[in-house]
Design a protein around this nucleic acid. Structure first.
Lengths: 236, 236
DNA sequence: TTCGCTATTATGTGCAGACATAATAATCTG
DNA sequence: CAGATTATTATGTCTGCACATAATAGCGAA
């Protein structure tokens, strides 16, 4: 049997491509107001629904800006956004083909320190579980984790056993959350941190800091120090 | 006139909310195969189209995984992704309410160095424009830019004037691209870098490294050293 | 049993039409 | 003419329906 001829109707992907090409080629330079969805649909002989989906995605991608009645405008400098998967240390390590290892370094319950309360809006005397642990890749120190968990928000945390696997995995499995804030920066390792990571004091460490929230209340605050040389990749 | 009673039909946002809530509450624990779109549509009294849109977005967000015939599965550890806008230094600085300043430090044309060719797949002898410049916030050094541009890909770059504004802005305005790779890491500042940034040699600097491509060919490679203390925020 | 075809089924995408909503443009009014 | 009101218009979203496509499950033949 002959292969059935593909229906050559135009789809939203194709529409996206066409519009992108026109924007890139300066056929529609920055700040241009694009033709309305109905016009484009007519030109490309598809329905407005299809054009709409394409345009919505272009808006999501930061290529255009849409406003009712005002129309769709080509953004001057494409506000391209990059995405990265929020680091999960076990996945990171195993994804790189290395063996994952873990060690609990310390565990204690204490009142939230002032700097933490100030940064997160916690009550100053909140009871927190404070954990530090080390994640290893092929036996070598990879990441140093310093975590605070609000006991009021997650009472069960006190009964959890973190001798053989980290609190991150337990939390992500057991505790719901609605929002995450992440920040990245560089810091010099203290003597204590360097010793844990098998690096030299003062070495530059890539640091991820994460706050996890459930409906506006802090669940956990964690600081992750990576071993010197670590790179975080993203793609736009 | 009385306010017209809002039609209380259910929309895709509401569907997303409901599904999210059920997943969070463990009503649908990880690895559950959700009811089919048709069933959900019936339960929520909306159409399959609406449910479909909601589920597509949940898949985009990394909450569920969808496969034809196999159905929609709740992911075990929500592969939440964070997005950040690819740093554009002027926007960053002005967005923080500071005055933007700029200085060109050096400009020369040279063959691509070996490490660059190796990392980008450029021909080893490609002619490149090499620029270094400094971006200032309220007069203080903020970011040190070290950029390579492929002259073959962007011939007009040789005629551009980078005395008063940076190559990043010129490129984003004039040159189309299709892909961006970004990497972030921490590095200790060399003596020369520290002098430029008004910091101390050995200080930890947050570094962004960016490769920009047009249909598989490198357009530009840039290394951005931020002043010590800089934080990059993202939100999930 | 195992290979290979076919039927089934859940998601993917498109069409046509309708009404909702936001924001601008046009018009009316003092 | 300024300010308020109304009309217009582009996008936002939903309803129903139809067919496409991928992947599994089930069946039959070697």
């Amino acid at each position: 049997m002959a292969v059935l001829p593909k229906r050559d109707q135009i789809g939203y992907r194709k529409v996206k491509e066409i519009v992108m090409a026109r924007i890139r080629s300066r056929h529609w330079p920055p700040d241009t107001i694009l033709p309305g969805e109905a016009d484009l649909a007519a030109e490309l002989s598809c329905t407005r629904t299809t054009v709409n989906r394409a345009m919505q995605e272009l808006a999501e991608d930061g290529i255009v800006e849409r406003k009712r009645k005002a129309g769709t405008r080509v953004l001057p400098t494409p506000v391209r956004q990059a995405r990265f998967t929020i680091p999960q240390v076990r996945t990171d390590i195993e994804g790189a083909g290395a063996d994952y290892g873990y060690r609990l370094l310390s565990r204690d319950v204490a009142a939230a320190p002032g700097w933490l309360a100030a940064r997160t809006g916690l009550a100053a005397r909140s009871r927190m579980l404070h954990l530090t642990c080390l994640h290893l890749a092929d036996g070598a120190p990879f990441q140093l984790e310093d975590r605070w968990v609000d006991v009021a928000a997650v009472p069960a945390i006190l009964d959890a056993d973190f001798d053989t696997s980290g609190p991150g995995e337990w939390l992500v499995r057991e505790v719901p959350y609605t929002d995450i804030d992440v920040a990245f920066f560089a810091a010099s390792l203290s003597a204590a941190q360097a010793a844990r990571l098998g690096a030299a004091p003062g070495d530059a460490s890539f640091v991820a800091e994460r706050m996890t929230w459930l409906e506006g209340d802090l669940v956990t605050f964690v600081t992750l120090n990576f071993r010197p040389g670590h790179r975080m990749q993203a793609t736009g």
